[in-house]
Amino acid sequence: MPHSTITGIGHYVPKNIVTNQDLTEVMETSDAWIRERTGIEERRYIDRTKETTTTLAVEASLKAIADAGIDKQDIDFIIFATLSPDYYFPGSGVLLQRELGISGTEIAALDIRAQCSGFIYGLSTADQFIKSGMYKKILLVGAEVHSVGLDFSTRGRNVSVIFGDGAGAVIIEPTEDKDVAVLSTKMHSDGTYAEKLSYMYPGAHGGYFLEKYAMEGFGVDYDLENNKYGGVFWNQDMLDKARVFPHMEGQAVFKMAVRKFPEVIMETLTDAGLGIEDLDMLIPHQANLRINQFVANTMGLRDDQVYNNIMRYGNTTAASIPLALSEARDEGKIKKGDLVTLASFGAGFTWAAAVLRWGK
């Protein structure tokens, strides 16, 4: 059975830099307030008339394809992880196929909605497809555009200051060399507290889950007598009451993340027959610098064993790990043969990790 390995990597971020100071123009906040709570100094936003989640993915993909030294027509499977697709449907995978100019190949395109854990879920999926022999050259992408869907007001600042736009991509191919391969992946989820980090409207729930789980203030009053059909997925009430923005209970997310991050990292290392002492580089999901620092301290890792770039890009959810991995490679922070662990935690809740020997 072959192993899987990353043979190419690339990332792309929009050119528009938005600093913490810039955000003070539209909400009551400050550079110090944002840095203290998140570690973020700036983030990137798209040009809203010229860029989309898919166009960011195209730029990152082309870099990964070139880095792998393959022809784009050789790609035989696309995996696209995002929580911010261009359309509600179809998914962004087929749009990426089209924009890359490889539609004629008629290869499959799979969209993954595991939020911040999407890239590692995709990596684990690609790993199994490579091991099975079904595919030989997989394009795995994580791309996000948050800037078009945030509440840029004081009301929404706890969420809006955190997120940014970006993309990262890798090419995954088979190898017989275990010294440059993916060694283990683990994925988990627990939907018990799904609404604590969520984007609930528009949606087909019709308020059912929100009423069932006592989400006070999030229900919708429907005039079903005069609106027998429709109006539950989307209506004016959602706009009037600002329910079309992300919802996050930060403390609940923080407490769960700092517990599950170390657990899944150690689970994955143990599965690979390794320990924390073998680790060269941890690349965690870039949700909050304080979470990453807490996890690093808990696990006894040095600063040079953990790569963070949230300061420059904010939280780019499914894009954050491939973006950070690509930058770490470009900066010489990881080299061939290094033991690298990727770890994520996000909405769902979902969490995952992967251990690999770096081969580029």
Rank of each mutant, 00 (worst) to 15 (best):
I6N: 04
G10V: 05
Y12H: 14
M27C: 11
T29A: 05
I34E: 03
E41R: 11
R48E: 10
T55K: 03
A57G: 14
A66N: 14
D67K: 08
G69W: 10
D71H: 11
K72T: 07
D74K: 14
I79F: 02
F80S: 08
P85Y: 00
Y88T: 15
F89R: 08
L95D: 04
L96Q: 01
Q97G: 08
G101E: 08
G104I: 05
I107Q: 02
A108M: 08
A109W: 01
Q128A: 15
G133L: 02
K137T: 14
G142V: 05
E144A: 04
T154D: 07
G156T: 08
G156Y: 02
F163W: 00
F163R: 01
A169Q: 03
V170K: 03
I171W: 00
K178W: 12
T185I: 02
T185Q: 00
M187I: 11
G191Q: 03
A194G: 12
E195P: 01
G203R: 00
H205R: 09
Y208K: 12
Y208M: 13
E211S: 12
K212E: 12
Y229P: 05
A242E: 14
A242D: 15
R243A: 10
R243K: 14
P246K: 01
E249R: 11
K255S: 15
P262E: 06
T268Y: 01
D271A: 13
D271M: 07
D278C: 03
M281P: 04
L282R: 01
L282G: 00
L282N: 02
P284L: 02
R290E: 03
I291Q: 02
M299P: 02
G300N: 12
L301R: 08
D303L: 13
D304E: 12
N309I: 11
N309C: 15
N309K: 10
I310K: 02
Y313G: 04
A318R: 00
A328P: 02
D330R: 13
G332V: 09
K335Y: 12
D338W: 01
T341V: 15
V355M: 04
